[in-house]
Amino acid sequence: MALKKKRASRNLAHGRPPVLQKPKSISRKATKTLINSIHVLEKRKAQAVAKGNVAEVAKINAEIRALGGIEKYQQASLQGQRTDRGGDSSKVLMEWLKPAYAALKAAADAPFRMLEVGALSTTNECSSSGLFSMERIDLNSQGEGILQQDFMERPLPRDHSERFDIISLSLVLNFVPDAAGRGSMLLRTLEFLRKPVASTDEKLDEFLPSLFLVLPAPCVTNSRYTDEPTLEAIMNSLGYVQTRSKITQKLVYYLWTRKNTSAGHGESFAKKEIRPGGSRNNFAIVLRVPPG
């Protein structure tokens, strides 16, 4: 006589949705291909939206979904934060801030505030340092501690207490699909950063308030429309001064300290070719600011 199969026990967890599993590792080549593909599709979609081509927008959205959508993109981005893929970009920021550690630690009762836009983790270097009161936002939150929010739609600060000492845009600006949108994002950072006020600590004045900006290196090293002098001119027009920079084969890192509160009005930057050649990319920043 055949043995009866033992019925699996049922408990409260049985009816719940599956627990989020750790995604399988994506190869370095597949990671790069996926990220580049979604960037291209997002740019095409922005062009279709601008032309009012509804059918083309729907088609591109389907292509993005077929690749796994924003969730798959973020999975690829998280893979890029692994130590063997270059690691957490905020490590560079924390290394730069070392001269100001003593002053940052002294403010433990009223810590300095950091806004991390496009946050993928709550355990990166800046979060685990204990030096900041962190706020993290992303278009598609990957877990607790990260608010699902579009920076361009975030409510403006009501007063000084709601502004930040550091804003991190790490591999965020390059994901904005059009040049004018990138300029608008940079301009909007001024609404959320605290205004520069001289303190009793020169190190703090050197580094804060500031914008930490990370981009793929080709955005400034191989673009038809953007190089380091062009980027610096745009940032200077907004009242930022370059405090630190680092260029690697894959990424460029900048720390821009806000020095001038009256900037950001009147000076605009159009899309202008500065490096001709068929091998160049089209990354650009168009800045249109109202007269002040």
Rank of each mutant, 00 (worst) to 15 (best):
G86N: 05
G87Q: 09
G87P: 08
G87Y: 07
G87R: 09
D88P: 01
D88E: 01
S89Q: 03
S89V: 07
S89T: 06
S90F: 02
S90V: 02
K91F: 07
V92Y: 02
V92P: 00
V92C: 08
L93S: 03
L93C: 08
L93G: 00
L93V: 06
L93K: 09
M94R: 07
M94A: 04
M94T: 02
M94W: 01
E95V: 10
E95R: 14
W96A: 06
W96I: 13
W96V: 10
L97M: 10
L97Y: 02
K98H: 09
K98E: 10
K98P: 00
K98C: 11
K98W: 02
P99A: 15
A100P: 08
Y101V: 13
Y101Q: 12
A102P: 06
A102F: 07
A103N: 08
A103H: 05
L104R: 04
K105Y: 13
A106T: 09
A107Y: 14
A107W: 13
A108I: 09
A108L: 12
A108E: 12
D109W: 15
D109I: 15
A110N: 13
P111W: 01
F112I: 10
F112K: 10
F112R: 11
F112Q: 12
R113D: 13
R113Y: 12
R113F: 06
R113G: 10
M114C: 15
M114N: 09
M114Q: 07
L115P: 03
L115N: 01
L115V: 04
L115T: 04
E116H: 01
E116R: 00
V117K: 05
V117S: 04
V117I: 14
V117C: 06
A119I: 14
A119V: 12
A119N: 15
T123C: 03
T123W: 00
N124M: 09
N124W: 02
E125F: 01
E125P: 04
E125T: 11
C126G: 07
C126M: 07
S127D: 08
S127C: 08
S127F: 00
S128I: 05
S129T: 04
S129C: 11
S129I: 09
G130V: 06
G130N: 08
G130R: 08
L131E: 00
L131A: 06
F132K: 01
F132C: 00
F132T: 01
S133T: 11
M134K: 09
M134T: 12
M134I: 13
M134L: 15
M134H: 05
E135S: 15
E135R: 08
R136S: 08
R136A: 02
R136H: 02
I137L: 05
I137Y: 04
I137N: 02
D138A: 12
D138C: 10
D138K: 09
L139R: 05
N140H: 12
S141Y: 03
Q142D: 01
Q142R: 06
Q142W: 03
Q142H: 05
G143F: 03
G143T: 03
G143I: 06
G143D: 00
E144C: 05
G145V: 03
G145P: 01
I146N: 00
L147R: 14
L147A: 10
L147Y: 04
Q148N: 15
